[in-house]
Design a protein around this nucleic acid. Structure first.
Lengths: 223, 223
DNA sequence: GGTCTACTGCGACAAATGACGTACGGCGGG
DNA sequence: CCCGCCGTACGTCATTTGTCGCAGTAGACC
């Protein structure tokens, strides 16, 4: 094993929910191996705290439990900064269900794990230990969805052709297939073909979901 | 004061996130007045547990902290059932940011408070005490948004009932009729009836248009 | 009591939607 | 020159969506 295994694992939690911080704090207190050395309510605080520790020569945490959904600097950006400026600090993403899509971004930001918040506390421990030993723990549900996404063609607006993007914009304006056909002077069948292709490429199951994604991605202004 | 103030307040937490349950459990342990007597991971479990306690003649909780966003039976439905079958049990809604709009439905289901999960633990205590004494604690942010909505009602949305607004929110999350039915534990036919009524009241012709309007009106966050 | 609304549900139907395969002309890259 | 992608279009099929009418229950209001 190239990585040393410290007898005490220092942990830091970053989450805007005070209740979650308390929960992890209480849980860590029950396991002698873990030592919670600090907490932060957002990404900026976390980075500031880490820098302060380093300048003071105080020991840094081995693992940072990082919530992804936070006001201000999001967890992904914070993860990226931390893994770049403190390469020996492992960051484990801790997220609510429903934002599974961010796992890619998290891993791209060099997160060393991805936990769901409804995970059993024991799973949190497993993820932390895995991160310290240089490994990675993925929630089974996440892992399944991830592999499904890996095997499937990459989702993303970039995979759409110009025409399909045009179609998507009209979907996001609440147009029906007939409306779209009329506006683009194509047959309704063709419009449906395009819509179907868009949904397949984006791995969605309804035009409403497509419209919502288009807005989220800024393809059309919400108002 | 018509309501008696017990020296010990029994609390129960309903949340699908084990970490949140642990956090509240740990927090309650630090305050002698509060006594956490049980927890549940979803609405069905919570109701079953309450019924079991009642049949066994065991003391019921004074306050139930209820997460609103849960798989299976949602927190709103569970709140309604609990306040109806156990009128002396107060339910305090505990929700993440971003679902602020459900406060109407929550209060309509006789919730005795509405907390954001990023609330300071002290605020949780305040809300619980308020609920026990028959009062109600609202998060300042929530209260502000609520009054803003009361004073400046967005045109058509006011004509919707609480249930219909709930339906609209789910539409704006890309859910199908079947999804909505499952989430609200009603039949798909009923869900379709609601959707149809929403469209008629808003004078729209498709659920996609309804979703877009919901986002424009800020009923749901675009992200 | 009577009335009203909200919420729930059903049946039947029409329309829209989405998936699947197929096809053809154009156009650009190897 | 040929192959692949794009845009166009059709046929068929299952599913979803939306409408209309009807109806029972519960709660609120008068």
């Amino acid at each position: 094993m190239s990585t040393s295994r410290p007898e005490v694992i220092r942990v830091m939690v970053v989450d805007d929910h005070a209740i979650v911080r308390r929960g992890l704090l209480a849980y860590m207190a029950t396991i002698p191996t873990f030592h919670m050395i600090g907490e932060a309510a957002n990404g900026e605080q976390a980075i500031a705290l880490l820098n302060e520790w380093r300048t003071l020569g105080q020991p840094l945490p081995h693992v940072v439990l990082m919530d992804l959904q936070m006001p201000g600097m999001g967890g992904i950006a914070a993860t990226e900064v931390i893994t770049r400026t403190h390469p020996d600090v492992k960051v484990v993403a801790l997220t609510s269900f429903g934002e599974v899509e961010r796992v890619h971004s998290a891993l791209a930001a060099d997160a060393a794990g991805y936990l769901l918040k409804d995970a059993d506390p024991d799973e949190v421990a497993m993820a932390i230990r895995a991160a310290v030993t240089g490994g990675m723990h993925l929630n089974p549900t996440i892992a399944r969805q991830l592999t499904r996404r890996m095997t499937a063609p990459p989702a993303g607006l970039t995979s759409l052709t110009a025409r399909e993007r045009e179609i998507l914009i009209l979907i996001a304006e609440g147009k029906s297939n007939r409306d779209i056909a009329g506006q683009l002077t194509i047959s309704e069948r063709t419009a449906r073909t395009h819509v179907s292709n868009v949904l397949a490429k984006l791995q969605l199951s309804s035009r409403t979901q497509a419209a919502l994604l288009a807005i989220r991605e800024g393809l059309v202004p919400p108002s």
